[in-house]
């Protein structure tokens, strides 16, 4: 456990906000799978079941000074950080790899398809905060599968050596496509590896949003105050397929899923809200219907987004494009746009 004072407990309005965000994430995530089945988008990587881990960690980010480095499965983080969700979903509509939101403004790096590709970027960005004398913290997302990549080792070692203000947030969702954690993570715990790098780590119940928020807040407090990097391993479960092209029936049964998934994180928070009196049934229903309306609005706006103009293939390769690229763009215009 990081050696910092525990942050104050979550307030009732914060808990209700977390529920709204998780419900919105669930609704959009579920809708996106349906849109893929309907042919509206070509593919999607659902985060079903990871709402508490994603929303709880993203909720802690201070957009004035911090920066998050997502993978391709961070819908809930994006939602919690206020990223434009139409711009975010644009990556899944195959409009632009990194999405159409502004990553610098959103403090949310472009959607990253390379497994473990952005973990080192988070360390570099974090070290840049130290060099510039700023107090920003980098939040790096990766999963149990990515933990096998060499870049994760390099990133954790660099962060440990440089005492970089970075929080590694590992969502251990049990599966790297079809390979379960026990055949992915030697020793069984990514968090346990952190000690070897001199990095403080903690394993949390990733389906308990309160535990996730509290752990992330502790980690941010430590990193921000110069205490060095922290690793959080949020134990969760990928309730859906790896992507809309995946068929989990080939590697796990419905019984396995029922047994291993645990209590639905949304249901868990709902029960807690009711039990503690932080919200009533009417609030939950209102939040769920707002989430559905929210998803429907994203669908409408996403449907209205046409393909990017072909010239954009050429426009963003360089800040200062080469002559050869300009010639290719000109030839493409003549031969493909018939101008």
């Amino acid at each position: 456990m990081p050696a910092t004072t525990d942050p104050p407990a979550l307030t009732a309005p914060e808990l209700r906000e977390l529920y709204r965000l998780m419900a919105a994430t669930r609704a959009l995530d579920t809708a996106a799978v349906a849109w893929q089945r309907q042919g509206a988008i070509p593919g999607f990587a659902p985060q079903l079941g990871q709402e508490a881990a994603q929303v709880g960690s993203g909720f802690v980010v201070d957009r004035r000074r911090d920066f998050a480095f997502p993978t391709y499965r961070e819908l809930g983080v994006a939602r919690a950080m206020g990223v434009d969700m139409v711009g975010y979903m644009a990556t899944h509509k195959a409009l632009w790899h990194g999405g159409l939101y502004d990553p610098a403004q959103s403090r949310f790096a472009p959607v990253q398809a390379v497994v473990a590709g952005s973990v080192l970027h988070a360390v570099g960005w974090a070290h840049g905060q130290t060099l510039a004398g700023h107090d920003g913290v980098a939040l790096s997302y990766f999963g149990d599968g990515a933990s096998s990549q060499g870049d994760v080792h390099e990133a954790m070692n660099f962060a440990g050596v440089l005492r970089a203000p970075v929080v590694f947030f590992v969502q251990n969702n049990g599966w790297a496509i079809s390979v379960p954690t026990e055949r992915q993570v030697a020793g069984g715990s990514v968090a346990a590896r952190a000690a070897g790098y001199g990095i403080v780590s903690e394993r949390v119940d990733g389906n308990d949003v309160v535990a996730v928020v509290e752990a992330t807040r502790r980690a941010f407090a430590q990193a921000r105050s110069g205490g060095g990097p922290v690793l959080i391993e949020a134990m969760t479960y990928r309730r859906g397929p790896h992507s809309t092209s995946d068929d989990p029936g080939r590697y796990r049964s419905l019984e396995d899923e029922r047994r291993d998934a645990g209590t639905d994180p949304l249901e868990r928070l709902a029960q807690q809200l009711l039990r503690t009196g932080a919200a009533d049934q009417a609030f939950l229903e209102e939040a769920r219907s707002a989430a559905a309306a929210d998803a429907e609005q994203v669908r409408t706006k996403l449907a209205a987004l046409g393909p990017r103009p072909g010239r954009e293939m050429f426009e963003f390769v360089y800040q200062e494009p080469t002559g050869a690229l300009k010639s290719q763009a000109a030839a493409w215009r003549v031969e493909s746009e018939h101008v």
Partner: peptide, 27 residues
């Protein structure tokens, strides 16, 4: 701070440079 040794890992050096560039540096 401006001229620094890194651990012996080239992917780390280049990946870190990406993050430094995102933070406004010219690595």
């Amino acid at each position: 701070a401006r001229v620094f040794d890194t651990p012996l890992a080239e992917s780390g050096i280049l990946g870190m440079s990406v993050g430094l560039a995102m933070a406004g540096f010219h690595p």
